[in-house]
Nucleic acid binder design. Sequence first.
RNA 1: GGCCCCUUGGCGAAACUGGUAUACGCAGCAGACUUAAAAUCUGCUUCUCGUAAGGGAGUGCCGGUUCGAGUCCGGCAGGGGCCACCA
Length: 868
Amino acid sequence: MSTRYNARASEPKWQKAWDEHATFRTREGAEAEGKPKYYVLEMFPYPSGKIHMGHVRNYTIGDVIARYKRARGHNVLHPMGWDAFGMPAENAAIERQTHPAKWTYENIATMRTQLKGMGLAIDWEREFATCDPEYYWHEQELFLDFLAKGFVTRKKSYVNWDPVDNTVLANEQVIDGRGWRSGALVERRELTQWFLKITEMADALLAGLDTLDRWPEKVRLMQKNWIGRSEGARVFFPLVGADSGAKLEVFTTRPDTLFGASFCAISPGHPLAVKLAESNPAIAAFLKEAALTGTTEAALEKVEKKGVDTGLKALHPFIEGHTLPVYVANFVLMDYGTGAIFGCPAHDQRDIDFARKYGLPVIPVVAPKDLASADRDAFLKEVAASAEAFTGDGIAVNSGFLDGLDVTAAKRAAIEKLEALKLGEGTVNFRLRDWGISRQRYWGCPIPVIHCPECGIVPVPHDQLPVRLPDDVTFDQPGNPLDRHPTWKHVACPKCNEPALRETDTFDTFVDSSWYFARFCSPKSAKPTERAAVDYWLPVDQYIGGVEHAILHLLYSRYFSRAMHQTGHLGLDEPFAGLFTQGMVTHESYKGEDGRWLFPEEVKFTNGEPVHVKTGERVTVGPIESMSKSKRNVIDPTSIIDEYGADTARWFILSDSPPERDVQWSEAGAEGAWRFTQRFWRLVTGEPEGLAAMGAPKPACFDDAAMALHRNTHRSLAAITDDLENLRFNRAVARIYELTNAISAFTPGTDVDAARWARREAIEFMVLAAAPMMPHLAEECWKELGHKTLVVDTAWPVADASLLVEDTVTMAVQVNGKRRDELVIARDADNKTIEAAALALEKVEKAIDGKAVRKVIVVPGKIINIVV
RNA sequence: GGCCCCUUGGCGAAACUGGUAUACGCAGCAGACUUAAAAUCUGCUUCUCGUAAGGGAGUGCCGGUUCGAGUCCGGCAGGGGCCACCA
């Protein structure tokens, strides 16, 4: 009997059943023997309070993969945890007078319940939060191992100081001169900080990208650009008029243009500039001015290139006796290369802007290849007089021993000469900086070292780990609560037993998320990792998350894997074999008459016009944007799950848009998905013609109608399988719609048994194929069909290859590339037969219009093109 | 400024390595059932000429390669992403 499917009653029932059967408990050892492993991981959430639609999309995608792989006979690891350290917990502590731990664990409890309500196939036994002492203890172990291996350094450096969050930020966390979280303008401060020497692995991280063939090209490119490898040379310009023997060290990617050099310039942050400023008021004033300039894009665009002459002269390495003026210039960056450049105005736009302003020579030394000598002279004259630099390829001119060489050869020759003269060397420079991991915050993993006045830096001995966060801290004043805690930092030096101080900085939270995927393999281990476990499970076969982590998190994790490989905690370098970056969930935004943003539930549509539910005022529909609290265009997943059920939410989020693209959440679309779950249920329960008994033998022969459905079922299954393998969920959804349409439209022929059998097969396949996406509904249907087992324990059906091809094919017939008719013909017909049949078609004959046929192209099974 | 991506009906989108463009869904229109509504079912829905049969145009724009281009190549326009005074 057909009744409505009641998701609210059904979903908790099946979640309980999976729980009781320990269905998603990971199988290990003998139980897993003979099965290939598959590790599916979604980027773990920050416990901010409640789940949002982005989480629903992320975890639905992962869940479909986990369930599909499980049905395909894989031993699946699909865990969940919490990226639980970080600033919001401290901000909440300040705002609500609560403890960060309390706030965090309460959020985790809420979000865990919400995620469980989605019916995710997760092994909850492996759950942990990065703020669990059990977890950060092992992070401290790792750090000490890194320290012993020399991966860690402590150095005084200029740091990005966020004045709102009162902490240091990594370069990666500064976006357009502002803190990535607070949005505050970042200041430069000099502090002593802990660093992980990620730059030492820059080349390895770059080379590794080429092996990641299951990563999006876009992400690999972003990482490549971020690492920013450039080959070039260091050039040492001897300084005249400074201390004897002093040399200015410069980095360049164009040593071939050295003969075109007309000045040198150093950054306002350069030690030489700082030193000169002590005795030169003009330079001091210039440094002050430069420090005031913002680093935002807008500020940089407005600022003109300025400099001040230091009066120093640099000796040209190749031209005997020739000197270049040395400037301090505002466009030279301290933290790229050596903080000093040589300027070659003819072939660099910034340099020519600078040269024109200060009346410096412009000497062209590269000319395009294959120019006649008169044309070349004209070209050189033009460049010398121009305001535009020539940055193209060519050959060296006016360059002494380099003349006639192309750019690449000239670079090589210039480097050889520099090395011979001991005035420079070939080198590789990276844009990537070392990773500063110190944070002056409470809610993070304590850095396990002790500062002893006698012994210096002393690692906390392993038997004294973990260094636990104290619970009794206050947030009533700015700064680090750990630093002002009355007792916590005072300890005896482990070496000399004299009074010493704990490090009060904590780790950047990106450290926590750089190895959690490895911890999931053995979350209860007394060591950071168990080699047997990580060797079995890693790499993660499919990692899923937002593109916003394309650089930071993924690069840090790749670095950590290499470091952990070298310390013996892991056996590989690349942790994520497959990466998928999903798009965002968007929604229309709404504005009231006074311009304030409105929540979707405050808006109703009458006759297509949006009005306010209560006041009836006119509402403007704003742009479709990523869901955000500020625009109020958010849909709470819980309200959707309460109203329609998790399956409907899962189904809708997978439909329509390809998963890598943004998907627009719409009320109409959600209702459509809900109508489909009902239709699906009716199809299973309300069979008009009846089904064959479960397990009934396949009839010996089928009539045409039954055979068509039988074929259709297998073709659909093959297509859905292929789509799921390639993460094309929107297409898999469309195929299931097509299959349900075919079942609805099925009219039995004369053979009643065949019809019932074919219909049962179609319905069972439909249920099994939809199960990864709508798991609860599938279980309910499966039971309705009389099965005593669970869908999750049922193997993925195999499509019968012999049913995928038909005896006849439909071919399009074109005349001069224009489709005129189609032809149904035997699949194995030879080209002659096909050609004759095509030419005999009435419409084709008409299109040929008596002209002579010049050529006939036959692509078997596809198309015939007749050229006249 | 550099590098990269995208552009297909009213909308989200399909179209495997060049081979019948618009599958599937949403929205819309018409009809059936119903006292009525909801729900459900059926049909139509790229544009255009035509009562129809049938014709013409059509994947952002211009050009090219090809028997054949949404797909490949060159240029342009619009939108987006990442990086950015990177030497």
